[in-house]
């Protein structure tokens, strides 16, 4: 599994456009809100945490159609499935790679967008703390829907339709961590979602991969 992760990281470094596009999208989409809502500090600050969360969610979706599709198209998926590695481990490795190449960079760049949107300084730590499990949930559930839609004719259209509703609970609790009077409660709910997604999403994705390769 380590070899698979290393190879995928190497590939995404050499074809870095996908991850970079997600980051650029994140910053541009976030700053569009400032243009649309106007620069009034009070209003922007109230919206900021939610805007960062929604933009991170949408940005994390962008590279999902390249998680399994290249391997499916060039025959690597068959070789992977016959490597002796259980299918859920393949799916987990892909989710981890997606997080390392998309989730982690989003996390690192999120403070910039938060400051641009005038999020109060004291809430930035809470926002980042909520985005750590948040981006992990995006990667796990996103990988699951990428596997489910693999081989479908309109996969790129189908995938957001399947992924976005799955992300709503994480979005509700995650965006309310920053600025909430009781951030711990929402944060624990986020942790619970991550704890459920961690085993279930790779298992489901693994089954979908087996079905896609039939």
């Amino acid at each position: 599994m380590r070899a698979l992760i290393a190879q995928d990281l190497k590939l995404s470094l050499r074809q870095g456009a996908d991850s970079a596009a997600a980051l650029v999208f994140f910053i541009i989409a976030g700053s569009l809100f400032a243009f649309a809502v106007g620069p009034a500090p009070g209003l922007l600050a109230r919206l900021a945490a939610g805007v960062v969360w929604v933009c991170a969610l949408l940005a994390a979706l962008l590279p999902l159609d390249r998680v399994f599709a290249p391997d499916f198209e060039d025959g690597t998926l068959d070789v992977l499935l016959l490597s002796g590695l259980p299918a859920y481990e393949i799916a987990f490795a892909k989710a981890l790679t997606h997080w390392l190449t998309t989730g982690l960079p989003l996390l690192l760049i999120a403070p910039v967008l938060a400051v641009m949107l005038r999020l109060p300084g004291g809430q930035i730590n809470a926002l980042l703390a909520s985005l750590v499990p948040g981006t992990m949930i995006f990667s796990l559930l996103g990988t699951f829907s990428a596997a489910v839609t693999l081989g479908a004719r309109r996969a790129s259209v189908l995938m957001p339709v399947i992924t976005l509703p799955l992300m709503i609970p994480a979005l509700i609790f995650g965006a309310s961590v920053a600025g909430s009077a009781h951030p711990a409660a929402a944060f624990y709910m986020l942790g619970a979602i991550l704890a459920a997604a961690l085993p279930l999403a790779p298992l489901g994705a693994g089954l979908a991969l087996r079905a896609a390769s039939e």
């Binding site: 590939l11 050499r14 074809q15 060039d74 690597t76 068959d78 016959l82």
Partner: peptide, 15 residues
């Protein structure tokens, strides 16, 4: 037990 060579080569152009 199986080594697989499909009709596709399963090689990565960038590697």
């Amino acid at each position: 037990r199986v080594a697989w060579l499909g009709h596709l080569d399963a090689v990565k152009p960038a590697l």
